[in-house]
Design a protein around this nucleic acid. Structure first.
Lengths: 212, 212
DNA sequence: TAGATTGTTAATCGATTAACAATC
DNA sequence: TAGATTGTTAATCGATTAACAATC
């Protein structure tokens, strides 16, 4: 159970997908599920499913399979901890920030949005995700007082470059990065999850233009 | 150059990142760049950089390095073809669709947005990304007339499930999928690029809660 | 007991990295 | 020519898949 350092990044990235399918099975009232059935849904092999679960200690019963509810709960605990939500701020309250805020606010995801910051004076005082939008210059004081752990960056490339050093200084440990700028290279101490939408769209283009 | 079927998915996914860094170098007026310098920027090895480029035939000069402008142009051609833009429709004009539309509309990305569809009557007639929002029930007729190639799905899971079969029927070849539903498993013929924002956020949570 | 299915070890496969010959 | 750096082959590494013993 939750043995440290055993799960590789590819395994970790599959956990949310397992969780989604298990939630679906659970909603359908399914009681048990086998590794081969899960593999079929996930588009992979039964071997991989079993290997993945065994990174965390094995949740199944030999000869029987996996109990849907047990498995869902265990993976949920891995993903969301024991219910403590990660204090999070959103930086950049434009259209993308607005869309992204709803993902943070689903408490099923394990985060708690405690602040939203932007440089646009026109946005000040408006609400986003249940909290008021504040000027970016107040971020330092806010962090000193509330110690948020996670920053969600929905700003342009240059703003992200300018902000990066500060994020480390203010004590953030994780960044969900939508900016064009690749934080992970410069700041190896931060845990960064990059979502480069432009890159994603370009690589789709390559595949469409170059398939036989 | 552009030898078919040689580039693996990991290589393809790195192309946009190369392109970004080369665009930066180009903007700085840099003339030449070496594989080791690019590797440093990308956070990888010189070997990988050279291997990657050689999937497409090798753009460098032995003993010299790579000409920034040549390399940028060649990778650009791989990603965006010879300038013909892929006709694209956006399905789902909510907050996420709104944010995503701007990525499609940057013509640097190789797409041309020709239609936006939604089920919300309140949105009809409004513009998004330069085109009017139309009722989803008109999609079939629209596709018959304009033959869009790419669908961008910014709809909830259930709507994506309902739409999936139609997308194949209407002749779409590619999908940029933001829905919770995993099209790629059921429709192997479609080229699908999934962006599961919820999954991305959850796996960040795992890494933050389980780092030493 | 026989059948099913996990947990776990071993084999395979593919991607990354290292090495070096080619050449500018 | 010597130094630098690519193109390309070979070695390594890690992830996926297969196999099978354990056990319900």
């Amino acid at each position: 159970m939750s043995v440290q350092g055993k799960a590789s990044l590819p395994v970790i990235k599959r956990l949310p997908k397992y969780y989604r399918y298990l939630a679906n099975l659970s909603a359908e009232g399914r009681d048990k599920v086998s590794s081969s059935e899960l593999a079929h849904m996930m588009g992979t092999t039964a071997s991989q499913v079993r290997q993945d679960f065994n990174c965390f200690g094995g949740f199944g019963q030999q000869g029987i399979g996996y109990k849907v509810e047990v498995l869902r709960t265990e993976i949920g605990k891995l993903l969301f901890g024991d219910g403590e939500l990660l204090p999070t701020v959103l930086i950049g309250a434009g259209r993308l920030g607005s869309a992204v805020s709803s993902f943070i606010c689903r408490d099923a995801n394990g985060y708690r949005l405690i602040g939203v910051f932007d440089i646009d004076p026109a946005l000040m005082g408006r609400e986003m995700g249940g909290v008021p939008i504040q000027p970016l210059e107040d971020l330092a004081a806010f962090c000193a007082e509330h110690q948020p752990q996670v920053a969600v960056l929905c700003v342009p490339r240059q703003s992200a470059i300018d902000l990066a050093g500060d994020l480390v200084k203010y004590g953030f440990t994780g960044v969900w990065n939508f900016s064009h700028y690749d934080l992970s290279v410069e700041y190896p101490g931060l845990t960064v999850e990059n979502v480069h939408l432009g890159d994603s769209l370009m690589s789709l283009g390559y595949r469409l233009r170059n398939k036989e």
